[in-house]
Amino acid sequence: MVSVPVSTTINSDEVEFLCRADESLLDVLRNRLGLMGAKEGCGTGDCGACSVIMDGRIVCSCLVLGAEAEGRTIETIEGMADGNELHPLQKKFIEHAALQCGICTPGFLMAAKALLDANPDPTEEEIRFWLAGNLCRCTGYDKIVRAVADAAQEMRGKRA
């Protein structure tokens, strides 16, 4: 099978790669670009562990083809912190003990960032439904919801 050349932007960097036409964006990120923060929990778009933001929209990278990244802007967990300065969501996840094993954490953080980018002041119900595409088996979601709400509050304070 002939490879497809792709030019895209990942975490503000211009990136070029070759991939097979049937290769998922998740496999490209993990196997070709060394961006292993996105995880494969199911490969069928049911668990959200591979969540990335593409052109401002949260997607399961296992359901996007690598070739579809052409000309797009992609954000992954590796680009969430500003150097050594963690994003407020990252800080709050640690502070609230919102992770146990941590395998779902990159996906949750990307989904939560997409939420707060779209809605800086979500209700608990909005947080719960927005994050319903991300599975966590360890925490029962309680501390995740609290961390997201707390981060939203802190970010609103900074904006004001």
């Binding site: 292993m36 963690l86 992770l99």
Partner: peptide, 19 residues
């Protein structure tokens, strides 16, 4: 309730799991 020592690795995608 201090911060966990593996926290930063796990919120930045650096923690290395089985795969």
């Amino acid at each position: 309730r201090p911060r966990r020592p593996d926290g930063i690795d796990k919120v930045t995608g650096r923690a290395r799991y089985g795969a």
